[in-house]
Structure formats: C-alpha cells, structure tokens
Design a protein around this nucleic acid. Structure first.
Length: 843
RNA sequence: GCGGACGUGGCGGAACGGUAGACGCAGCGGACUUAAAAUCCGCUUGGGCAUCCCAGUGCGGGUUCGAAUCCCGCCGUCCGCACCA
C-alpha cells in the first residue's frame, strides 16, 4: 500500500468502477427486502451547495448501509426543474429557460458524481421534460374526472408596469421587485385542487405517521386547523343577515361588537357610499399580508354605523370593519368577545368598547377586573343568563343546542386549510391540459393528445407570460366541436411536480405515469430526508396527491413517506467590515480571509476583519464554501465525513476550515490503520474483539437512527483501540471491521483499502460486501465499574464481576476506605443498590 | 401576536432518573527532525493552586436516596405562520 491515500486518483477511479458495474441500480424483480431511500430532489440552480451535500450524504450512508444489510435499495436522484429562477435567468441573461436548466443539471450531476453517491442514475428524471410532465398532465386529467379539480376566481398580485403576476416573495413593501410599481390585486379565474376534501383524512393520517418528527406532525395539524364552532347569523340594522363563525359560542354574552373583514360584502356595501370606509379598506389592503405582520400590527377598525342584534339579549352591537378579520376563514365576520380573546381585547381597548367578563375561575369572581389582557382559559360561565355556572364545554353545547332549536345557527366543523390553487401565470411550468372553446367551454385535452408540450421558441423581451403572446401555440381546434379554440396558458404550481416524483422513481413506463404493481413493491418511501422548510406545503401536498390517486384507484398506498427526517442547516461564521461611507456592512468570503487564532485578516491587505455570528450559509452574507473546492482539496470522503461528524443531523452544522482539516487527517489515519492489516497474523486479543463487536453493533444502531455523529464518535474510539493494539489475528479482524463500518460513509478509501488488502478472492467491491456479523456473546461485558455514592455524591468506584448480587455490592461499597471516611461514623439509614450500576449509602 | 423547538467546557456535542463533559475541533506541553510539515505521547470545566475537597448542565423553586434528564415559574435564542375568531 502507498504511504498516503490519494483521493484525487481514488475518487474518480472508484466512481468509474461503480458506474461501469452499475452497482447501485435497483432491481425491480428482486426478492430481497426493499428499501426506498429518498432525499428531496434539488432545484437545478447551477451549483450544489453544502446543504445538498449534507442531505445527500445522510441518505447515501443509509442507502449503502441497507445494501450491506442485504436489502434491495432504491436510491434515485432527479431534478425539480421547473420554476421562476429559470425565467429570471432568461430575462436577465437572454438565455432560454430550458437551455439554462439543462446546463445546470449537467453541472450539478457531475458535482454529485464527484461526491460518490450510490445513486441509481438510470431512473434520473427532470420535471421539465415532457416525459415527466406529460404523465403529470394525464394524472391531472384523472383528478379532474374525479371532480377533484375545479376553477374559481382568485386574486393575484399584479404588477401593472411589468404586466405580470408576481409571487408573494416578489412583492416587497407592496411594490413589484423589478418595476417598483405599486402592486394591484387582480381577480383571475384559476385552477384549484380540492385538498379540503381530504382535510380529515390528512389530519387522521398524521396519527399513523410514527416515523415523522412530532414537530412536523404538529405543524401540519395546526395548518389543517380543525375546529368545532357555531355558525350563526346576526340581524343587522339594515335588515340584512350577517353570518359569523365562532369557536367560543359559550362566550356569546360577552360579545360587545361585531367585525367584518375589509373584503367582506358588508364592508364593500358601506364603501360604495362612504369615501371614508373606502379609504379605510384601501389602507387595510396596503398593509402587510403575512400573519406575523398582521398580528403585530396595530388593530384598526372603521365603525360602519350599522348595528347587529344580539340573539339572546337583544342588545344592539356596533358593526366594525376590522383589519384583523380574515375573509378567507369562516364567514369573514366575527362576534367579538374582548374579555376572552386577546385581539378583540386590544381592539375594544383602543376604541373604548365594553369588555365584559363571562368566564371566571369561580362564581365569586364574576366581577373581577381584567389584568390588562384577555382571559382565554377554562372556568365557569358568569354574567351569562342561562349559562351561568356551566363549564366552557357545557356552555358551548348549550348555546349550540339553543341556536339549533331556535333556528338561527348550527354547530359547524371548520378547517383552516384552503383548497390548493395550482394556476401559475408563467411559462416555465407544466402546461395545464385544457382548451377553452367559446361553444363548449373548458374542455380537457384528450389523453391521446398528451403531452401538451411547452413551445421552445418563446420571447422573454415582451413582458408577461410568453405562452400568452406566442404566435401559434395557443391556437388549436376544440377537441369537442372542432372549431377554433384556445389553449389554457396557465401552468401548474411546481409543488405539483414534487407531489408524485417519488412514484415516478419507483416506476417509469413509457405509456403511463407508473405501474401500480411496482408502486406497491417500493412504496412507501422507507426514509425521506430533507429540509424543515418543507414541513408543511410540500409534504402536505405530496400526502394529498398520493391519497387522491389512491381514492381514484391509481395507487394502493395512502401515505408516501413512512419515515421523515428533517436535517439542520449548514452554518458558517461571517467576516465583515463596516463601509465608512454609508455604515453598511461589507462581507468577505472565507476564501478571502485568513483565520488567526481568535481573529481574522483579509488576505488581500493583511488588515483585520470582524468575525461575525455563525449563521446559515447564504450568498448575501458571503459565508459560503464551494463543495467542489473542498472535494478537490481533501477528497470526497473527507467532506462526507465532516457532514456526519459532531453535530446531530437535525441540528445546525457549523462549517469550519479546521474541522475539514481534521477530517482530512482522519482519512489518512484510517489509511495507516488499513496498512497494518495482516491476513496471516495470529494471536487473540479478547478486549479488542469485544470492542470491535460492540462498535459494529452500536454503529448499526446509530445509522438506523440516523445518529451519524454518535456512529462517528464510536468509530474514532475503535480506531484508537486498534492503534494501541499489538499485531494479532484480532487486530486484523478489527481493521477489516472498521473498514466495513466506514464503507457507507467513506466509500472511496474503503474500496481502495479493500482492494489493497487483497483477500477478497472474487475481486468484489466493498460496496457489495455484507455488514460484519456480530458475536452476541462478545457484547456482554463480564466486569462492570460501579459508582459508590454517599448521600447521592460520588465517593468511589469499584470494579466487580457483572451480575454481582446486591448484598455483596453493598458489603464491597461499605468496605471502601473513601466511603468510610465520607460517612465519618454517622449511622447508616438506608442503602440503595442498583445492580451493575451503583450503590448509594444514605448516612 | 400565535404555534413549535432548543439552552451542557473556548467551540460542536456525549450522557436508560444513577460516575456530567464520551468523541471531535481549538489550545498548551513534550517526543521525533538540522528545521518545518506529517506523526506520536500527555494535559485541558472553574476554584481551593495537595493522590483530597468544594462548586458546576441559562435563572429561581419543587419531586426523588439521587435531576442535564421529571414538574412549576421566569429569562434567552432559533424556526414556522395563511389574524384560525
């Protein structure tokens, strides 16, 4: 063996061998147990970033490990290739989105290959290709036939200067990001998927997703937001009826005003005759639209002059237009109970409206004043007529019953979840396969005419959707009547693309989206790994899409991902100086900076730069490192090892230059250990045998739990034990074992050493070798070290045979000189003995 | 504002309610070398500067023979958000 391991040669060598032998192709016909390991596929932005490397390394270790455990592993890769950045590039650099995207894919694929991932590239897919989005169109038509797709009016952000629809993120302070023009709300007829039909199913299904993090399930549960409440109508002073929804009907006697959303018909009606009301509504629309902005914004209202009659007391409650009421939830109108809802409390305080107590800790506290905030907890009803003395739950039931009985309201289950709007007024997406005919209306494209292919000859110089002003593409004959008609020019939300790609990975026939028999074999995905930012939307949409396909009999699986793991971000410290001219920070990249002990200097001028906080790597802060450069310097195994070391995978991983250097050193250290392998060595080293098998068993457990940092620590320990050992058959066995343990993590050096050891007669690869067997008997220690405490404080430790009875342990503990000194003659009151663990003497 | 999580050495972190700080990084000392790199050995929570003891897991309480771990109340940091009526 050479003295040093040379990754620049070995990496590409083994990557080529794996390719040639098609080591990682999944066999659909295999009768082995199956493992579908999947990481969220990347958007082809152009370069792999460190976060991808972390994500794919974790999946790769699991995939390679499962293969060693005798599983048939499906570990595919593809490209989430539709989306806005390609169109932005087209506008900025005059390149075609398709060309730009495909070039990025080629670059990133080469980068992934250099990292040595065990991927089945034969199943590679890109969502921007007709062989992917064509089948998607066909599935969309299936859902349409099943009445799960419909059209309705919905508002979009319209940039009047760029003549284009903007995404929320393109609206900055109410203005278009490019034009700077004030954004208008425009109503368009758009396509929706009936995800709300599945609200209960999706909620219910969360209970069975045992392999999902609790926090993600909670987030989805809150997102779906099932609530039980009362929908009832107020009679207004103009004679009309105003339906409201409340989850706290028990507090109805505490209602002191009624509020409607700015977009509510009542508000619109008032605005028609009141310029002040109109101005107020405009003001509400101008403000921020996110929850955080709205919740922290000052509560504002406009008194409409109308009143609403309280259904029980007959009191006349003022009706306000309020900026904190949402048109999208419930009926867009509320009964406001300031005493028991914080938002209502703030509003009532501002506008001097009554704040009444209707829930109290006890009847005696019926008139206790409020301590500056609403009380939303449990209690008994007070000041509430026939409800007095009831608990909150009973009172809700009583009010609901009365409303039902008297015919002015009824109990209702409400969901926060809204239907999924999938229309995008953009070019670079899946064309929605419909045709608009003046005579026949909206007509689906017949399946034998799919795919509806995006035209390549498009013009980005003209503002707006290129599909709209393409000279010929839109114009088709109606499939029904044959007269001239027009294609739908909206494309599908890219979340549709990612809602079924895992199905296409499992099966990709030419003539249909997938073969259900293959889906049944591979799905659900055994382990899905990706960023927490997808906790709600992507994961909920994928769950919905799968369930929708199951409902219409296309697949036999309801939940696509059996286990989910959400990884942390990769972070790095920042380097900055303050620009003396404008006081703004100027950031420097790690490559421009030299780290010196506590501080850092800019290489260019040798002057110091401030070492800033450790934050998520981002281009704007320049605290990024390029995986390619790391691979070129240290090799793929070192960067993979770094991704797995130290930080638990669900937490953030701080990147550091010294950390990757340490990983590079460990690669060489391993190489020296491998070099000590001697197949002919003899002699037994029992403690090393035990350490070896304990490590093998523990690392297996750690990998299955995705606790890679712990597995890494154990491998370090075994490495140290091997280095301290004398040559023996045991040492050679331990070296072989550690090679197999690191093989899923550092496959290149593992292959190189496997070959160099030369006792794999058939010339097999370590990538095809089985995981080492463990002698269960060796795992059991025969000696244990026991803690001896006096009054809970450690005073001594004693090493004894494992399984020693309690009375003997107690005697040994009391015999300890240190213990006797600590007891100092005090009477012993109690002795707690935990066999094989500790003795605690209470004196 | 609401929801979710997390607080352990200089840093990343280990630790079924049972020896806190495994393992890695950084640092210090030493060996090897003409020298450097590489490598190897040792030390590394704080304090009293004793093989001994005291304190110590964000802060304050509590449960327990025993708490980083369980409970209550604070403080701080991070993440998500579509006002959930």
């Amino acid at each position: 063996m050479n003295e040093r391991f040379d990754p620049s040669r070995a990496d590409s060598h083994w990557q080529r061998i794996w390719d040639e032998r098609q080591c990682f192709r999944a066999d659909d016909a295999s009768d082995k147990p199956r493992s579908f390991v999947l990481e969220m596929f990347p958007y082809p932005s152009g370069r792999i970033h460190i976060g991808h490397v972390r994500n794919y390394t974790m999946g790769d270790v699991l995939a390679r490990y499962k293969r060693m455990r005798g599983h048939e592993v499906l570990h595919p890769m593809g490209w989430d290739a539709f989306g806005m950045p390609a169109e932005n590039a087209a506008m900025e650099k005059s390149v075609h989105p398709g060309g730009w995207t495909r070039e990025n894919i080629a670059n990133m694929k080469a980068q992934l290959k250099r990292l040595g991932f065990a991927l089945d590239w034969s199943r590679e897919l890109a969502t921007c290709e007709p062989d992917y989005y064509g089948p998607e169109q066909s599935l969309f038509l299936d859902l349409y036939e099943a009445d799960l797709v419909y059209r309705k009016e919905s508002a979009v952000n319209w940039d009047p200067v760029d003549q284009t629809v903007l995404a929320n993120e393109q609206v900055i302070d109410g203005r278009g990001w490019r034009s700077g023009a004030l954004v208008e709300k425009r109503k368009l007829s758009q396509w929706f998927l009936k995800i709300t039909d599945f609200a209960d199913e999706l909620l219910e299904g969360l209970d069975h997703l045992k392999g999902w993090p609790e926090k993600v399930r909670t987030m989805q549960e809150n997102w779906i937001g099932k609530s039980q409440g009362l929908e009832f109508a107020f009679t207004l002073s103009d004679g009309s009826s105003l339906p409201v929804y409340s989850t706290r009907p028990d507090t109805i006697f505490g209602a002191s005003f009624v509020a409607v959303a700015a977009d509510h018909p009542v508000a619109q009606g008032i605005a028609a005759t009141s310029p002040e009301a109109l101005a107020f509504i405009e003001q509400c629309r101008a403000g921020g639209t996110t929850a955080a902005e709205l919740e922290t914004a000052e509560k504002l209202g406009f008194d409409t002059g109308l009143t609403a009659t309280h259904p029980f007391s007959g009191a006349l409650l003022p009706v306000y237009i309020a900026n904190f009421v949402l048109m999208d939830y419930g009926t867009g109108a509320i009964m406001a109970v300031p005493g028991h809802d914080q938002r209502d409390f703030e509003f009532a305080t501002k506008y001097g409206l009554p704040i009444m107590r209707v829930v109290a800790a006890s009847a005696e506290e019926a008139n206790k004043p409020f301590a500056g905030e609403a009380e939303t907890g449990e209690g008994v009803l007070v000041n509430s007529d026939f409800l007095d003395g009831l608990g909150v739950a009973e009172a809700k039931a009583a009010v609901n019953a009365r409303a039902q009985q008297e015919g002015w309201g009824s109990a209702k289950t409400q969901y926060r979840l809204r239907d999924w709007g999938v229309s995008r007024q953009r070019y670079w997406g899946t064309p929605i396969p419909f045709i608009h005919c003046e005579a026949c209306g909206v007509v689906p494209v017949p399946k034998d005419q799919l795919p509806v292919v995006l035209p390549e000859d498009v013009d980005f110089a003209t503002p707006g959707n290129p599909l709209l002003h393409h000279p010929t593409w839109r114009h088709v004959d109606c499939p029904k009547c044959g007269k001239a008609a027009e294609r739908e020019t909206d494309t599908l939300d890219t979340f549709v693309n990612s809602s079924w790609y895992f199905l296409r990975f499992a099966s990709q026939p030419d003539d249909r989206p997938f073969d259900p028999a293959q889906i049944a074999k591979w799905l659900p995905v055994e382990q899905y790994i990706g960023g927490i930012e997808h906790a709600i939307l992507h994961l909920l949409y994928a769950r919905f899409w799968t369930r929708a396909l199951a409902r219409i009999g296309k697949v036999d699986v309801k939940e696509p991902f059996a286990s989910l793991f959400t990884q942390g971000m990769v972070t790095h410290e920042t380097y900055e100086r303050t620009n003396p001219e404008n006081g703004q920070p100027v950031y420097y990249s790690p490559a421009e900076v030299e780290r010196t002990g506590d501080g850092a200097t800019l290489t260019e001028d040798g002057q110091t730069v401030t070492v800033g906080r450790v934050i998520k790597m981002s281009k704007s802060k320049k605290n990024v490192v390029d995986p390619d450069e790391i691979v070129a310097t240290y090799g793929a195994d070192a960067i993979r090892w770094f991704m797995l070391s130290d930080s638990p995978p669900e937490r953030d991983l701080p990147w550091s230059e010294s950390g990757i250097e340490g990983c590079g050193r460990f690669v060489q250290r391993l190489w020296r250990i491998f070099g000590q392998y001697d197949a002919s060595a003899s002699g037994e080293d029992k403690p090393l045998d035990r350490k070896r098998d304990q490590t093998v068993a523990a690392v297996a457990e750690d990998i299955e739990a995705l606790s890679f940092n712990k597995a890494v620590a154990r491998i370090y320990e075994l490495a140290s034990a091997i280095e301290k050992a004398q040559p023996s058959a045991s040492r050679s066995a331990a070296i072989k074992a550690i090679l197999l343990l690191v093989a899923p993590m550092m496959p290149h050096i593992a292959e190189e050493a496997w070959q160099a050891m030369g006792d794999n007669e058939d010339g097999g690869l370590v990538s095809e070798a089985p995981w080492p067997e463990v002698d269960e008997a060796l795992l059991v220690e025969d000696e244990v070290t026991i803690a001896v405490q006096v009054k809970g404080k450690l005073r001594d430790t004693i090493t004894v045979a494992k399984g020693l009875p309690a009375d003997e342990l107690e005697a040994l503990a009391l015999a300890s000189e240190k213990v006797q000194r600590s007891i100092d003659g005090a009477p012993i009151r109690k002795v707690i003995v935990v066999p094989d663990r500790l003795v605690n003497i209470v004196a």
